[in-house]
């Protein structure tokens, strides 16, 4: 990249790294945001769904396939949400059986969701589906990298609105109160005349739908194509992120931005010509997740802010 090339590409030197990381944070964080909001809702109702990694991959495939077949990326997003809801509902219903463990079912659905996505997604590896549109918030700048960085996808803004909306739901609405009560114990919920298994199944289904949308973002916007390596643990990292966010939707938003920035570190360094240690920089999000998980966990039983019925600390 030479200095002052036409087309507005400017050599920013090392300043390119933080800018690329900001751009990356916005671009990479959206799937984290949707999956973590989904998991937040599920966990607030007292269940853990580790299957969201599989739901994310299946959502990516379903969204891409439907967008390609219909020509509408938004129909793809809808299809991804619906398929995610089906996976979530399956998890919710199966875990309602006595002695069936939610973590184990999550692992099984992770493998099944990935397998089904590869199975049905095979014909869609080659074709090109229409992308989701983005909004150019960087129109004021002459610098191409700044304009690229501020090209914000609509789903990112929807995710932000969802985070605020979900926080309001937990704080101020009847539905939010019911989910919280169920998450703090089935007995209390039954005393209020609420069926906890039903609430958990619905919360898991809604969480699955959000994870599916996160997958559609992967295949329809960034990186913007469907292949079998589309997700490398984003769904699982989002689950860890919820713990770090202390089960608060707005914190999920900030944490998703942080994770997005970490995920953008490798590509950002590459863009300024640092190519050594490519794999190590790409491992940054996993190391960061692990570090935050260790910092956020505690050797005593209960985690602050955790729903009481949650089986994380069995």
């Amino acid at each position: 990249m030479g200095a002052g090339v036409s087309d507005g590409v400017t050599d920013l030197g090392l300043w390119g790294v933080p800018l690329a990381m900001l751009a990356g944070a916005i671009r990479v964080s959206t799937p984290f945001l949707f999956v973590s909001l989904g998991e937040c809702l599920t966990e607030r109702s007292g269940r853990i769904n580790l299957g969201l990694e599989g739901t994310l991959v299946f959502g990516a495939m379903a969204g891409y396939a439907i967008a390609y077949e219909t020509g509408s990326p938004w129909l793809g997003v809808l299809a991804a949400a619906l398929s995610g809801a089906v996976f979530g509902l399956a998890h919710g219903v199966m875990c309602a059986l006595p002695r069936v463990n939610d973590i184990a079912i999550g692992i099984a659905l992770m493998l099944l969701g990935t397998g089904l996505a590869f199975f049905f997604g095979k014909p869609y590896v080659q074709p090109v589906a229409p992308d989701l549109p983005s909004i150019p918030f960087g129109w004021w700048s002459d610098i191409a990298q700044v304009r690229a960085a501020l090209d914000v996808n609509a789903l990112f803004l929807i995710g932000l609105a969802l985070a605020l909306g979900m926080a309001w739901m937990f704080r101020a609405t009847r539905a939010g109160l019911i989910v919280r009560v169920v998450g703090d114990g089935a007995e209390a919920a039954r005393a209020l005349g609420v069926d906890p298994l039903r609430v958990r199944a619905l919360s898991t289904a809604a969480g699955g739908a959000l994870a599916g949308v996160g997958g559609a973002y992967l295949s329809l916007y960034y990186p913007g194509s469907w292949n079998e390596g589309i997700s490398s643990g984003q769904g699982l990292m989002a689950v860890a992120l919820v713990i770090f966010a202390r089960w608060r939707p707005v914190n999920c938003f900030w944490a998703a931005l942080l994770f997005g920035g970490a995920g953008a570190l490798g590509p950002a360094l590459q863009s300024v010509g640092v190519t050594g240690g490519y794999h190590l920089f790409n491992a940054a999000p996993y190391v960061l997740t692990l570090g935050l998980l260790i910092a956020a966990s505690s050797p005593s039983r209960a985690l602050a802010g955790a729903p009481a019925a949650l089986g994380f600390n069995r």
Partner: peptide, 8 residues
């Protein structure tokens, strides 16, 4: 540290 072993 009480870190969930499945995720870690």
């Amino acid at each position: 540290r009480g870190v969930n072993e499945t995720i870690s």
